[in-house]
């Protein structure tokens, strides 16, 4: 299907319409009521500020993107390893699963400042926060994915004389990829927000610290610009994962399409 086919265009228009309506009402309200721009700037003003501050926005976005990306990478490696351990044996599952669930109950708002106290204002506490908020969906999806292999499939491989290792790499691991991608799609939406939150607690650079500075200097317009960039960044990363999924596991997209069709 082409990117510009009629159904896609239709879907796009339908999605944009309510947002557009909202922005028009907002713009009209600010102009008619004459609101103070330090309290609520108009969409047009936010757009202008975004273009004017493109330089500072880009520098900070770059920092946040690196934190979100690398943090996500750490989560991916740690998540796959833990997921594989959990799927490896019922004993390991019983040992690892409960502490993992408990780890997710720790409020990040308490942990992030502690991480800054321990590791300073550098990139490390940001990476840790991003990794901590993103790795859980990955662990769960990998563990479920590895456990989803049909028992008959495993028996077939055993009858061929396959080792555990061969069964893992030829059947279980590739079969868990669709699950992994579901987990990553959930995680990636937390990654940027996690990075921004960590920066907010204390940082030299990044969208989080930019937001804090904007707030402190009553620059509501710049604040909204940063929000806009954050949204674009998150959606962009999500779409990158979707693209990667289509590239790496085309068989999955095709088989699900078949089931739906």
């Amino acid at each position: 299907m082409s990117v510009f086919s009629v159904p896609r265009l239709r879907a796009f228009v339908l999605a944009v319409l309510p947002v557009l309506a909202f922005l028009i009402v907002w713009e009209a309200y600010v102009r008619i009521a004459g609101t103070d721009p330090t309290v609520l700037p108009s969409p047009s003003r936010i757009l202008l500020t975004t273009f004017d501050s493109l330089g500072v926005l880009l520098v900070n976005t770059r920092q946040t993107l690196i934190e979100a990306g690398v943090g996500m990478g750490i989560a991916l490696v740690a998540g796959c390893a833990l997921g594989a351990l959990i799927a490896a044996s019922p004993m390991l599952r019983r040992m690892l699963y409960p502490p993992l669930v408990v780890s997710q109950t720790i409020p990040m708002i308490a942990l992030a400042p502690l991480l800054v106290i321990w590791f300073g204002f550098g990139i490390l506490p940001k990476l840790l926060v991003v990794a901590l908020v993103t790795f859980f969906p990955i662990v769960v999806s990998v563990a479920d994915g590895l456990a989803s292999t049909e028992p008959e499939m495993i028996r077939l491989l055993q009858s061929m004389g396959a080792s555990r290792w061969q069964i893992f790499w030829k059947v279980r691991a590739p079969g868990s990829l669709p699950y992994l991608f579901s987990g990553v799609k959930i995680s990636i939406t937390y990654a940027v927000i996690g990075a921004i939150f960590a920066e907010y607690v204390g940082a030299f650079q990044g969208l989080g610290i930019l937001m804090q500075n904007a707030k402190n200097s009553y620059r509501a317009d710049l604040m909204f610009s940063a929000i806009l960039v954050t949204a674009v960044l998150s959606v962009g990363m999500f779409l990158a994962v979707v693209g990667l999924e289509k590239l790496l596991i085309p068989w999955h997209a095709r088989s699900t399409q078949r089931e739906e069709g």
């Binding site: 049909e150 008959e152 499939m153 028996r155 077939l156 055993q158 009858s159 061929m160 004389g161 030829k170 059947v171 590739p174 079969g175 990829l177 596991i249 068989w251 999955h252 088989s255």
Partner: peptide, 17 residues
Amino acid sequence: RLGHAAYMPQKDLLLPW
């Protein structure tokens, strides 16, 4: 016997990827 016979179950069990 493991690895010395070729076994074909009822399901085709083809790997989708």
